[in-house]
């Protein structure tokens, strides 16, 4: 267990993944990783391409089922074997690919899998559009293209739709996989503002990125992964960016960090 739990007051972590492993065709993509996240906290998950961070997070969001290990939400063990299970636990994910159905409009995407129905059991598109206008108004006040399929939208607008879908359903845990990869500077700033706002609302956020500056700006703590293993965990205030680069590239754990099973030396 991470000794850092003491550093954060209050009860059990919002989410805890303990000793999680998954293998694809004999290759251990994630190997005995334990990470945690507290309410109102932003935790960065860092590592090279192929370090296993996206795979780890897909286990939490229900896209993959872990071979081994345990997931706890608010201290209670949960079984997450599908995206539906994850959503039921209040875990929402914004995927790097955005995972939008390109051929339907913004409201249909926001409510996909959780449609609002009328008293007759038919789709209540008007009510969904009304709520979509509300939530999009908060994220992207200039957005007007509610009637068009999302493939007609710009990268930033598509991102707003993906974020709206994640935050509209009272998420307690938000997973953001490379949320700013496809965005310009203004839109990146906007996402940063949103992260701070959500944090204040007590939502816990996993931020997956290989942009170390982004992570230092927004995260409270970081977990670093290399070759499927956890190199170490640190508070952002206790380590320098160079030290974190050392963790990512060499797997070397600095004094300010708590080493994991993947640490060298």
């Amino acid at each position: 267990m991470s000794g850092l739990a003491m550093a954060v007051p209050a009860a059990a972590p919002l989410v805890e993944m303990r000793d999680v492993s998954i293998a694809f065709g004999g290759i251990k993509a994630v190997d005995g990783v334990s990470i945690d996240l507290y309410p109102g906290e932003v935790v960065g998950l860092l590592g090279h391409n192929g370090a296993g961070k996206s795979t780890l997070i897909k286990i939490l969001s229900g896209a993959y089922a872990a071979d081994h290990g345990e997931i706890r939400v608010n201290g209670e063990p949960v079984h997450i074997t599908s995206p539906r299970d994850a959503k039921r636990c209040g875990i929402e994910t914004i995927y790097q690919t955005l995972a939008l159905a390109d051929n339907v409009d913004a409201a249909a995407n926001i409510f996909l899998g959780r449609e609002k129905l009328t008293a007759w059991g038919t789709l209540d598109d008007h009510a969904m559009e009304a709520e979509a206008r509300k939530v999009m108004g908060r994220l992207n006040p200039h957005f007007r293209r509610f009637k068009e399929p999302v493939k007609a939208l710009s990268g930033g607008q598509r991102q707003s739709v993906a974020i709206a879908r994640a935050i509209h359903f009272d998420a307690r845990v938000l997973i953001m996989d490379e949320p700013t990869a496809a965005l310009g500077p203004a839109e990146t700033r906007q996402v940063g503002e949103l992260v701070k706002q959500l944090k204040q609302e007590g939502i816990g956020i996993f931020l997956i990125s290989h942009d170390i500056h982004d992570v230092f700006d927004l995260a409270d703590r970081i977990h670093v992964m290399k070759n499927g293993k956890l190199v170490g965990t640190a508070r952002v205030s206790d380590v320098t960016q160079d030290e974190v680069l050392g963790m990512i590239i060499l797997g070397k754990c600095p004094p300010g960090a708590v080493p994991g099973p993947g640490a060298v030396g």
Partner: peptide, 22 residues
């Protein structure tokens, strides 16, 4: 006008997204 129809079109638009939407 039904969920079924919406899912049919969502699957056609992006099968992976439909699956990830639950």
């Amino acid at each position: 006008r039904t969920r079924f129809g919406r899912y049919v079109f969502a699957i056609g638009g992006n099968p992976e997204a439909a699956e990830l939407s639950g």
